[in-house]
């Protein structure tokens, strides 16, 4: 039993240590205006967003707490309730489950200035939504594919899951662009079925073979890419819609000795993808410039708190411009990203 007691003490001590070691959120001070930036989870993406928050804090002389819920919906709600309880001046939230959180978001919107970022809760009383037009971004990605395959060819799409609206919008943008369909409005966009195969169109040189999902398991993402290489001899381009998809495709292609023969286009800015763009093994990627999310969110809250609401568009949607990263601008972009990553960690 002595050993047991010792072990328990050890376990408790390590638990304490871990709790203590956690980075504390920035403390709020009473004399300045304090807002909060709430993410939908923990991810390197959000660290880049936090960098933008820090820049905006300095520029607009405002305090902004960054909160990253670690345990999903419940945790996010708990964080929000704490913030409201201490009388936060404004909140920018990325709702995890917009549809079912609407009531809660409305409740919060009564007590503070509330905007959404990254993902919207369209039916709620939020004052503004700041985000990427994922459909447009998808079309831009489609253009990258066209540039990679000027002669046309077979295209395969990879994504974590299609249950998410942003994933569906991106995918639709790619499909519409490649098949030469007219541009759709984001809010009324119609989607092809999730398991649609061999999509093609009159006058288009491109065939969209299939869309494979992996539920955020990177090993699955890679084996999906491998299986595509096996099943479709003529696949000419792999399109990865989530950050980890393009690197997984690149790995599979390299190990199958097809580097260069199968093109890769993607979304977001993982280092492996940037390196591949630099090396010429990937065509390009669409960056949402996460730091602009953070920056624009804080900036918007500052303006709202200062009583300026004229900048809010009719449809409450403020688009953050995305950036097409190709061999031409990759060095410059990568340098910015590194800088932001450093800043965001602080």
């Amino acid at each position: 039993m002595k050993v047991a007691r010792y072990l328990l003490a050890f376990a408790c001590a390590s638990a304490l240590l871990l709790g203590w070691g956690c980075k504390k959120p920035t403390d709020s001070k009473n004399n300045t205006v304090t807002v909060a930036y709430v993410t939908n989870g923990v991810d390197p993406f959000w660290d880049l967003c936090a960098a933008g928050v820090r820049i905006a804090e300095k520029e607009f002389n405002i305090k902004c707490e960054v909160h990253m819920p670690t345990k999903g919906l419940v945790d996010q709600k708990r964080i929000m309730e704490t913030l409201l309880a201490k009388g936060i001046d404004g909140i920018a939230i990325s709702p995890i489950d917009a549809e079912n959180q609407t009531a809660f978001i409305n409740e919060a919107a009564k007590q503070t200035k509330l905007i959404t970022h990254d993902a919207d809760a369209p039916d709620s009383d939020r004052m503004l939504y700041i985000g990427t037009n994922n459909y447009k971004a998808g079309r831009a990605l489609g253009e990258l594919v066209k540039a990679a395959l000027p002669e046309g060819g077979e295209v395969m799409i990879f994504v974590g899951r299609l249950e998410q609206l942003n994933a569906r919008q991106r995918r639709q943008g790619v499909i519409d662009e490649l098949l030469g369909r007219p541009e759709q409005e984001l809010s009324t966009a119609k989607f092809d079925p999730v398991d649609a195969k061999n999509l093609k169109a009159e006058g288009s040189k491109y065939i969209i073979l299939d869309t494979r999902t992996d539920n955020f398991d990177k090993a699955k993402a890679k084996s999906n890419a491998e299986d595509t290489i096996t099943k479709y001899e003529n696949v000419a381009c792999m399109v990865g819609l989530f950050a980890y998809n393009p690197p997984a495709c690149l790995d599979a292609i390299r190990e199958a000795n097809r580097t260069g023969k199968i093109k890769v286009c993607g979304f977001d800015e993982p280092d492996a993808m940037l390196q591949a763009i630099k090396d010429g093994t990937a065509q390009g990627t669409i960056s949402q410039q996460p730091w602009k999310y953070g920056y624009e969110s804080v900036k918007a809250m500052k303006r709202i708190l200062d009583g300026d609401t004229a900048f809010i568009p009719e449809n409450k949607f403020m688009e953050v411009p995305f950036l097409v990263v190709t061999k031409e601008n990759v060095d410059e972009f990568w340098a910015t990203k590194k800088e932001m990553a450093e800043l965001g960690k602080q």
């Binding site: 923990v42 991810d43 955020f216 398991d217 990177k218 090993a219 890679k222 980890y244 690197p247 997984a248 790995d251 993982p270 492996a272």
Partner: peptide, 17 residues
């Protein structure tokens, strides 16, 4: 083995489930 197979590690996701 997984780390080298995937050439990259996401602390929040690698090995989940």
């Amino acid at each position: 083995l997984f780390a080298f197979e995937l050439d990259s590690v996401q602390p929040a996701q690698t090995g989940e489930f």
